[in-house]
Write a protein that binds this DNA or RNA. Structure first.
Lengths: 214, 214
DNA sequence: ACCTGAACACCGTTCAAGT
DNA sequence: ACCTGAACACCGTTCAAGT
């Protein structure tokens, strides 16, 4: 009954998403994805030249599913903040992707987000150059925030496992330990974006005032 | 003549640094490090419970060697900028570490840098809370900047290899392509820190003015 | 055309055995 | 005590072969 059409690219991407959900990106293997589809690992090489390309396509699907854009009727500072928080959430909820953000080429979906962001800021009175810079600054804080969040989680996980002094604090002089210890706590707190993002928004508002004064 | 003392922890860390310099973190293997020392791969397990611990210790050695602190006589805004640029340089010159920043637990050397940063800002009139937040904001921008820099390098490398339209721009509508294309160019530019860092410094100066007004 | 099986050259890690 | 060899259970990828 079922017309067993040959496997499409999308089949492999969906299977990869499934495997990531089950075991995380780091433990994903070509063999595992193939098994998920009940197929030989070699079948994948008709659609993707190598593992990296499969992962890049899969990451793009994750970004497409994230849907970071809030209601367009929000004032631009609130809108920018929501976009940033949406990106942060999307990346943090799939933490196993984080280590790949720096080495993975971003795909069409990522570029679409970029375009929409710049288009909105341009409409609000920013120059294109300013809008691009704003996007870069927001992206840096989001990615930096996700990396830090993920680092801290790893450290806390390790502490919970080993019940030892955090590695970060071992081998430090008393005075350094006294200064460094609160950081661990502060970083583990909820709102990674609450620190850098308001600074960027303030700078952007200042920029816009400058534009209007001309 | 040579007293063949048994291999120390440091021997393995040094060998790991050597291997990273030769082939990058991603291609480092326990077997490769052991071969570097002319020893069985199993010898390492007397000093490190697993590969992750060896890498964490090696990353800490990289941080120790980075020496990010500029002359203490610099005014604090210039000092903060130099520290940020030092970190950025150190991480960018060893790009193969970047993907691990988010998953690797940071060690004692990283904490020492943290402590020194906070101590300096506290001396300048920031509260401890403000100094910690300042450090987190700077770190986010540095790490985000390094990740973006590294992503762009990967994309440009791929373009050079394949001579194709950047993957980031394929599959986009005309209008989106028109908006997204300049980003790739802007991101590839030299100064990743030139965008977000001044925004943070401006916010910090504002904060300090607020402190003094009390 | 699309998929497979066997093989190659690797991994991290365990464990019993050597010295 | 410190190191080794052989083995286990995996990898990504190639390539000739099947249908």
């Amino acid at each position: 009954m079922a017309k067993t059409a040959s496997l499409t690219r999308q089949h492999f991407i969906d299977a990869a998403l499934q495997v990531v959900a089950e075991v995380g990106v780091d433990k994903l293997s070509m063999r595992r994805v193939a098994t998920e589809l009940g197929v030989s690992p070699m079948a994948m090489y008709k659609h993707f030249p190598n593992k990296e390309e499969l992962l890049a396509a899969t990451l793009d699907a994750v970004i497409a599913n994230a849907d970071v854009f809030p209601d367009d009727s929000l004032a631009w500072p609130a809108w920018v903040e929501q976009v940033a928080r949406g990106m942060f959430q999307a990346l943090c909820s799939e933490t196993s992707w984080v280590p790949l953000l720096s080495s993975m080429r971003l795909g069409a979906q990522a570029a679409a987000v970029t375009g929409a962001f710049i288009e909105r800021l341009s409409r609000e009175g920013f120059s294109q150059r300013q809008a691009i810079n704003a996007y870069i600054a927001v992206l840096q804080v989001v990615i930096g925030g996700v990396c830090l969040h993920s680092s801290i989680s790893a450290e806390q996980q390790h502490q919970a496992d080993s019940k030892l002094t955090p590695m970060t604090l071992t081998g430090l002089k008393e005075v350094e330990r006294h200064l460094a210890a609160p950081i661990l706590g502060a970083m583990g707190e909820l709102d990674q974006l609450g620190i850098g993002l308001p600074m960027i928004l303030a700078a952007l508002e200042e920029q816009l005032r400058g534009n209007r004064a001309v």
